[in-house]
Each structure stands twice: as structure tokens, then as C-alpha cells.
Amino acid sequence: MNISGTDLIKACSAIGAGLAVIAGIGPGIGQGIAAGHGAAAVGRNPGAQGQIMSTMLLGQAVAETTGLYGLVIALLLLFVQPLVG
């Protein structure tokens, strides 16, 4: 079986896409911490649940961005294949 240069680049792009979504670890930890502190805050002050909820969701969504950058890189490598000439 002959492996041409394009095949090699495609295979390496697939590996690179897999490596890129490892970026999801960081937001996972960060969102967990935010949710834990949100739960603690609701436990301390149940009256402010609505405001705590919206603040927590906003912070989690912003923290999620870095993971989504990894996802975008993976999708670009898989579907657009910029490295294949």
C-alpha cells in the first residue's frame, strides 16, 4: 500500500483534530468550579437564586470560549482541510 503525501497530511490532520479538542478539559474544570461556587452561594443566600443563576451562566459561557476555540480548530482541520494543498 502506498501512502501519498496527501494521505499523510489527512491522517495527521485527524490526529491534530483529536489533540485540539483536548482543550475541552480546561473549560470543564472551570465550569465545574463555577457551578460549585454557585451552589454554595445559593445555599448561603437562597433569596438571590435568580441573580446567582444568571451570573453563573454568564461566567460559564465566557469560560467555555477557549474550549470552543479548540473545537473550531478541530472542525477546520477535519472539514476544511487547509493543509491539503
Binding site: E64, L68, L71
Partner: peptide
Amino acid sequence: ISMSLRLFANVLSGTI
């Protein structure tokens, strides 16, 4: 850039 990529990547990942 970050606002548009956040919305785009979330919806696109669900679609995919």
C-alpha cells in the same frame, strides 16, 4: 470575534 465564535461553535457542535 469571541462573541460570534461562541454562538457559532455551540450551535454547530450540536448540529454536527
